[in-house]
Each structure stands twice: as C-alpha cells, then as structure tokens.
Design a protein around this nucleic acid. Structure first.
Lengths: 356, 356
DNA sequence: CTGCTATTCTGAAAGCATTCACGTAGCCGG
DNA sequence: CCGGCTACGTGAATGCTTTCAGAATAGCAG
C-alpha cells in the first residue's frame, strides 16, 4: 500500500500539503489540490488508520460491549449502532461479556488501547463502570450506557421507558377485567427489570388492587426462567388470570408452561411480554408484547456518543425511548367463571356453569 | 496512559528491554525482567495497539463482515467467531453489508487500513472477492469465507454440508411416504441455496420421483418469501404434501400461509426448515429443521484464519460441517385420502372417507 | 589475569500521518 | 518600487512500539 510520502512525491508536494488536502485542515490552491487528489486516485491510497490514530490520539473505532449477541434482543441494538457509526465513518468493535463483569473489565481495559472514540455498553450484571468510564473520558472517549444502567451511573445513557411500558401493559390487563395479576421480572439487580416492576406495581396500586408477594416472581431473562416461574404461578391459589412477563423470552417460557398445564392462553390466562421480538408473531397464540426499538436504542446511543464527542462539556443526557403496547392474541378478558380452587381450563368451567 | 518510555525509566532499563520482556522476543535476565514487570503492574501499563500495529504491520483485529446481524442466523456465527477470537487475544470489528456488494467493498477497503490479521466474511449477494482477498493476503491477512462462497472462490472456507442436509430431510419425507414434494429455495445465486437444492434433487431422483418445475420455487431467505411462494405451491394441482423450506424463515412463512389457507400442518402438509433456529421450537406445530451450528461455523472460521495466519503456505482448506435433521411436530406422513382438486383439510377428508 | 565467546542490553531507526513553527510568494497601499 | 500583510506550502518533530546492529557484560578456558 502506498503511503503519504509516495503521494507527496507523485503530486510533487510536501507531506504536510497532502495531509491538508486529505483532511481539509488548511487551504490548498486548486492546482496542487488536484495533483494530490489525482495521485490519491491513481494509487488507491488510503491513509493508515493506525498511524492516524496514533498521531491524533484517537481512532474512528467505537467499542461496543453487549452481554450476548445470541440473545435476540441485542442484535437490533448492535445493528442500530453500526448503521449510525458507519454513516459517520466509524467502525464497531463488538465484544460479548456473557453478563460477566470480570469479562467486561477485561474488554474494557483491552479496548482502551485502541483509543476508540467512544464506548457503547450494555452493562453486565452487577456492573460498576464508574472507574473505567472515567478513564475513557479522560482519554477523550465518549461513554454511553444502553438499555440498563450500572450502579451509580452518572453518564450519558439511552434506555426505553420501561416503567411506562410495563405500566401500560398492566393497565391494559386491568382494564380488561383482570384482577389477579402476576408478574415475572428479570433479575432485579438490573435497572430495566426494576423499572418494569415499578411500572407494574404503579398500575396495580392505581387500580386499588393488592398483589401478594408470591405473584411477583423474579426470573432470569430467558425461556427457562419464564417456564419455571410460570409453573410456580400456575400452582398458586387463586391462580392469576394474567401474567406480565418482563421480556419476550420469559413470555415464551410462560406460554410453554401454560400449554403444558393444559391451560389455554388467552382463555384461561393472558400473557404480555416485553421487547416485541419477531418471535412473538410466530407463536400460537401470537404474543402480545411491549415493543421497544432495540435498533433505535443502538442508533441513539451512537448518535449520543458522537454528540458528546463533539462537545465534551454539555450536560449529561439521558435519552428515554417510548414503548408501544402491541396487543396480539395472547390477551383476553379473564375467564368469567372459575372453580374455587382455580384449576382446570376456563372452557371446561364455562361448560360446567352452563350445565349447572 | 503510561507509555513504554515511562516503564523503561521506572525499571531503569532501555526501551528495547521493555519490549523484549513484554513480547518474549529476547532473553532478559530475571532481575531486569522483574523490574520491568513490576513497573508494568504498578502503572497498569498496556501497550498501544496502534503503535504496535503500525510497527508490526498487523493488528490483532479481525474484520468480520456479515449480511445483516438482524437475521437470526448470523448472531450465532458472530458469537462463535468472537469467542475464538477473544480466546486468542483478537478483537472483532463487525460490519453489515445488507447483502449489498457495493457496501461490502466499502467495508473491505476501509477495514484494510486497520491492518487486520484476518477477514471473516459471509459474502453478500453476487459477491466476487477475488481481488480484495488477494489484496488482504498480500498484506498478510488471512481471508476465510463462511456459510456461502463468492464466485470463483479459491480460498479457505467453512460451510455446512448443505447438500447432505437437504438430502437427508428430503429422504426423510420420502420415507414417510411423501411423493409430491415441493422445495422453496433461497436465492439461487447463493451457493448454500444451490447446494440445498442439489441435495433435494438428488434425494428425489434417487427415489425415482419426478418433480415438476413449479414445485421448486425460489424465494428470498425470509418469512415474506416463504409465505408468498407457499401460497403459490398450495394452489398447484395436485397440491404438494410436503415442503422443504431452505431456511427457517422461509419455513415460518410457509407455516403462516398454510394456516391462512385453513390447512393443517402436518396433517395436510409437512414442512421442514433449514438452520434449526430457536424459533422453530416455539411455533405450533414446532418446526422440523435441518440444524446447522452457526456458532461452530464462526468458531471454525476464526480458527482457520488463525491457522492460516501461522502458516501462509499450507494448502487451502475447506471445512464442511455436518448438519443434523431435527424432526419435530411439523412432519407427518402424507394424508391418506384426498379429494381430486386437492383442497380441504385432510382431517375432513378422512372423516368423509369414514362416512362413505 | 587475559582473551574470547556467548549472552544481555541498549539506542537509534523505522513505520505513517498530523501539526506547528516558519519560510515564501503574491498582492496592496503608499 | 518598497514595506508589510495575507495566503500557501514546507518539513521537522511527534506519537509509541518493534527490531536490528552493535555495545557492554558475564563467564569460561587457558
């Protein structure tokens, strides 16, 4: 690959001039400018990002840290981030933490030696990024947290309005007539889980309902978690008539458990998930869900990083994206009649009532 | 951040010695060695990857190019790649092409200026990477193609055994008694689509069956494609009793179309997908699929790149991964009786037969 | 204790682009 | 025609690490 020196020779100018033409850092008269540009075209020269980064103390790399790209929620975030990054001439280095804070730290430390312009991070469990973020900021990199916040986070962030999303979903169920609501939250040390639970509780309180503690279960954010906790919920007396699952994976597990118990969703029990993944459209029944735009989360995060990058001193920003309740087939009014012990399917019960 | 000079001062040695200790490039006696290591620990010094890359003409970055991380098949590949990369001290720069060869070229050109050690690429549509690959190889970077191959690809690659996978699935259907098989392929300019179609045809031929051209439809690799082509297939007379969908998204679309036509899967029509995505477990009926390990695809690709990297001259390798036919609920023997026009559900027909 | 070889260390050069202090040419007003 | 200013260009210094040629030291044999 040609280097700048060669371009300078070809164009018959000095190194500095080539640099100025390339970066627009100084005025260069047309004839010279053109000669430089020609030389660049002829050779297909592209400046070494390494040398440039070394000199400028900054690269056009953005470091992106996510728990696990295999979790179907995260690819959207990554894609949104990559698109905005690419549009602005930045590249994304992607790292998975598996929600392991140690691994997160390893990545954080290692990545800094590439002098990225920014760091977009979906914090791992029990993450505390204060020190690292400080270090990045000191080196001139913007740090933005996405989706959930580490403890004591005081920097820029982009999240969905988890509380309002959960509130709306819960209210919707209540409006349908549900009174015995259950919620399966994600891990409660995560701020998004906390906020969704808050939204749920607020809706419940506002409706003057009481929810016994057993009706709020904490699960891991996956199908297995949703399945296990739903099994528990379905054994409670009286059985809940609706479940707010705090993400779609949990909702999927809930649906499996419901089916396995020979209950019918939505006749016996309504389910609303959270995230609005594509998979909610292909289940039977189709899952209702609080949709949030993972893409936008990532896109806004990078935009925020770029803004921060341009203006280090402006006040911290905390972008909160709207959610949208998508009601599909998994929601219905609560069963009209029920046996006292709360077992059996609503359909059967309805039949029993007719006979009686 | 401290630099090497500072470490040298702290340890009272020369720059060269620090470098040698850090890289093990020369023998350094214990006392000095220790002083250097201490200084490194105390300062938390980490060598600048930029300077190192600049000097070595190579970074520990791997460039990874995928069509679209939002396509649920690709995150697995990326994750597999990242894990192996990380384990070997490499980082992944992720780029999406949207299957646009132009965008692919832009990424390819831009990424080279970071002097990556390797390039892992899932080629876009109509990709021809010969020239770029050559350029990368010339700069000492390993290039590995994954999942599908560009035209005239002569380099290392990792793919699944698409032909055998499709052959097995098709044979399974034939063994169940199906005679009127249909296939919905992906875009036929993609080698994986071609291979799956070949496998299908081979199984058909081997069973002595004939498939009219209309029973082989080409679709985009998504739900919409599967849906549209299935609609067409369901209108054919006689109607096919089984569909091999060449990926799970197509299968999902097929399932939707079947349901919409008030047909029952698997009673009226069997469906087998390809890829074995998680989503196949959450549909009703659960989708049978030819499972391939996207994770392994990515992991092997990076391993191959690292190997190539260590030995530039060894012969080109072409890793082909096994697939596994996962039969779930979407497959059954063909309906026993059918009306001549091929409409109506098998169940109804069976009832009619009983009455007669 | 001397002479040599083998072993360690050192320091400068190289890799490439950016930037800053400084030189030069052109132009205006006087 | 000259002083002086503006607008352009120049090239050396810089950022950080690796590597190579060569200096210094250690160790051993005689």
């Amino acid at each position: 690959m040609a280097n700048m020196k060669r371009i300078a020779e070809l164009a018959g100018v000095s190194l500095g001039t080539v640099s100025h033409v390339l970066n627009g850092t100084a005025r260069v008269r047309e004839p010279l400018r053109e000669r430089v540009l020609n030389a660049v075209h002829e050779t297909g020269y592209q400046p070494s990002q390494l040398a440039r980064g070394l000199r400028r103390d900054k690269t056009n790399i953005l470091a992106m840290i996510v728990p696990d790209i295999l979790n179907p929620f995260f690819p959207g975030v990554v894609r949104g981030a990559e698109d905005v990054a690419f549009a602005n001439g930045f590249r994304l280095v992607l790292c998975n933490t598996d929600n392991d804070h140690k691994k997160e730290l390893v990545h954080l430390n290692a990545l800094q030696t590439y002098l990225p312009s920014g760091l977009i991070v979906i914090p791992s469990d029990f993450s505390d990024l204060t020190a690292q973020a400080e270090s990045y900021r000191k080196s001139g990199a913007a740090v933005v947290c996405v989706d959930r916040l580490p403890r004591n986070w005081a920097g820029d962030s982009v999240t969905s309005d988890n509380a309002v999303g959960a509130f709306n979903a819960t209210s919707y169920l209540i409006d349908l007539g549900h009174r015995r609501l259950a919620v399966i939250t994600g891990p409660l040390h995560l701020t998004n889980s906390q906020d969704r639970l808050k939204g749920f509780k607020r809706a419940v309180r506002q409706a003057g309902l009481e929810i016994a503690p057993a009706y709020a279960q904490e699960a891991t954010f996956d199908r297995a978690g949703g399945y296990a906790k739903t099994k528990i919920l379905l054994r409670l007396l009286p059985r809940p008539t609706a479940i707010l699952a705090c993400n779609d994976m949990i909702a999927l597990g809930a649906l499996m458990a419901v089916r396995e118990e020979k209950l019918n969703c939505p006749d016996d029990i309504s389910i609303i998930g959270f995230d609005g993944l594509d998979v909610t459209e292909t289940t039977t029944p189709q899952l209702s869900s609080v949709y949030q735009s993972s893409y936008q989360l990532g896109a806004e995060a990078v935009q925020l990083a770029l803004d921060r990058f341009a203006d280090t001193s402006s006040p911290v920003r905390h972008i909160v994206l709207k959610t949208e309740l998508k009601i599909r087939e998994s929601v219905a009014p609560p069963p009209k009649l029920e046996s006292a012990n709360g077992t059996g399917s609503a359909k059967r019960l309805r039949l029993a009532a007719v006979r009686a």
